[in-house]
Design a protein around this nucleic acid. Sequence first.
DNA 1: GATAGTTTCATACAACTGTTTGAAATGCAA
DNA 2: TTGCATTTCAAACAGTTGTATGAAACTATC
Lengths: 231, 231
Amino acid sequence: MIELKRRAMATDHTRTAILSAAERLYAERGFSDVTLRDIVAEANVNLAAVNYHFGSKDELIAELFVTRSIVLNHERLAELKAAEDAGGGRAPIEAVMRALVGPTLRGCLGPEKQRSTAARFMIRASIEAVPPIRKIRNREISHLRRFAAAMRRALPGCADVDIYWGLHFALAMAHQTIRDSERLDKLSEGLCDLDDVDGVIDRVVAVTTLALTAGRPKTSKAVTSRDRTGT
Amino acid sequence: MIELKRRAMATDHTRTAILSAAERLYAERGFSDVTLRDIVAEANVNLAAVNYHFGSKDELIAELFVTRSIVLNHERLAELKAAEDAGGGRAPIEAVMRALVGPTLRGCLGPEKQRSTAARFMIRASIEAVPPIRKIRNREISHLRRFAAAMRRALPGCADVDIYWGLHFALAMAHQTIRDSERLDKLSEGLCDLDDVDGVIDRVVAVTTLALTAGRPKTSKAVTSRDRTGT
DNA sequence: GATAGTTTCATACAACTGTTTGAAATGCAA
DNA sequence: TTGCATTTCAAACAGTTGTATGAAACTATC
């Protein structure tokens, strides 16, 4: 029976072709205007193959999303762990935020040809929030909580409410920069260099860190401002 | 012929009913899963009325979007002008940012019953970016440029590139807070009070202002931090 | 009250969607 | 090769979509 499985998995040409064609098309055009017929055409397989291998369109999307979620979360956590290990169990807030927004930004920005379809697919998923995805997306919360915890460790004196807002804003900036890079490019007439991925990451991290550390004694060097401007 | 027009415009019951039903449904459920049949059912009019009065579904959406764009832009600019008048032609950066993000946030957050369908429709429009809307959306750029100009006046020493990034990040934070308020609520377990609209606005304005003024001499009181953490 | 113009209505249309079907093809063990 | 399970395929299905049609209802002018 091991033999049976191996064969079934080894020559999964059709299954794999569907998955990668679907991911590519969804990443490019979004869920709402990619049909199963588009996908099977791109994958060069028969229309019925989707339902045969995945059961339904929604299950195909779900499988795609679950797979990519796991990968992305692993990337983030690996980067976080590396930073914490380097700091003897406690990573500076900059490194925590970098681990949070870095993987996605690196995957979605930069010169056209080196952008990953995987990352762009994930952005689509979080933009369109189609039903099969919405159902699974709850587990993202517990993943983000691990980052909230790391942020707390980095900023012991920081109130929880500020941690969450900081986390939220960091994702917001990263996210929207990917989503609306075209508008920013037009608005700034090319002044904002969206191909400079590290520069963008630095900016997001800097703003977030600033927001989180302003009005706080802060352990290390860096910011020393006194009061928050609003409120 | 004046009579003709007046009658036609005065008793536009059907046209108006379609517009408001469509706006309500689109705001609630998004463009992709609201059909013309849903709209005419909600409006209690005949299916053919949409094509009769608007020509096509896309033209209906476009008219809705154009109308609301104009209103929103007016609101923002009025708030900006009021602030600039109060400051003798130069509004402080906090006021500029507040005029930018305030109208939308006030329209989309806060207690359920007082949210405006108009604002939520506009958020949907900027999220889903359906074809008829994408075509018109370019004029938004020139509107945003007026805010960039006001920001420049408020922060004379600030580099243009930072202005644009600040503008972009402010919109990103406001936008995403509306889009994903549910996630932030769950993540923070209710700690982040999304019904406190003014509090949210203050936060967005504060973070943006901080990012824009950090590492700058700054004319007035407020922040006196020395260096930016990144880059 | 007849007429001409506007608006409503039920209905049909053609195109497209995801899914199902049953037969053909394929691969592998005996 | 024979037999059996897996996989592919063309075709059809039932449902939904936006749009078009032509007759009916309405409204205001003569």
